[in-house]
Amino acid sequence: MRFILRRLGFYLIAFWVSITLNFLLPRFMPGDPVSRMFARSAGQMQPEQIEALRKLLGVDSRPIWEQYADYLHNIVTGNMGVSITRFPTPVTEVIASQIGWTLLLGGTALVIAAVVGNLLGILAAWRRGGAIDSALPPLLVFIGSFPYFWLAMGALYLFGVILGWSPLRHAFTDGLEPAFSWEFIGDAGAHLVLPALTIVLVSIGGWMLGMRNTMIATNAEDYITMAEAKGLKPGRIMFRYAARNAMLPSVTSFGMGLGFVVGGALLTEVVFAYPGVGYQLLNAVQGLDYPLMQGLFLTITAAVLLANFLVDILYVRLDPRVRAS
């Protein structure tokens, strides 16, 4: 318990540092969103409107510590301002409309890649030199080293355009109303398969190789020989003795991956025209949309920290040796 509280304190401090950086960095960037909006509207704005916009967007000439206090207050109350590129939608709404799809796509791909990759790694190491161990690692590394957008476009062209097995774009068929109906879920699922599959294909090799290597080291441990001598069933030795010990590094990578899912998968979103945070972030940067940028960075930071915190807690459950120290 004390361990968890200590970790929590650590993550709160890390969160504070990152939101402070999040506040400072855009303010050190050259350019000013209001002048940019002004330029875009081709001089059709009145000076009062500009002033009002400045106020609204928080681009003001107040001392920086006052802005900072405001900023902190806004974060605590969940008010992240209004998006500039999608004016006048509030940032929270912009993010909320995209994050579900990002989590769905990234989460599905991550879970499948991690689970299947680790299982393959376990099997490959257990039957070292066997069929799985000889054929899969080179193949997966080969696939994983394609440029992602090339692989994604190739897959889209083959399965979408030529074979017509997969929808070409978007997260669900245009005109369909999002609802919790079988029809909609099935449709969204069909749209999810190819984008998720391409992400799984490029990332699964890393999971498999990582697990295989740790597992081979674990298999040489004396407690594995002892477990064999004990006459335990091979499945129990493989999972409870070998994989249970070898999975610890994988759990860490999984936590990191989980945090970064929130950042979105930009290339996938672009190729498959899939809604998501990645594309939103690109837009925000291009449009100098500070509030949206800050909102997105804040969400990503919070997600990475939260995922790390969860991994820390999980790690304590998984490895009794951490508990003592």
């Binding site: 441990e221 004396d222 407690y223 020989t225 002892m226 477990a227 001598a229 409870r240 003795y241 249970r244 010990n245 998984l318 490895d319 009794p320 040796r321």
Partner: peptide, 11 residues
Amino acid sequence: FQSAMNSLNPV
């Protein structure tokens, strides 16, 4: 076994 230290599963 030779090394009891290592012949028990740590987890």
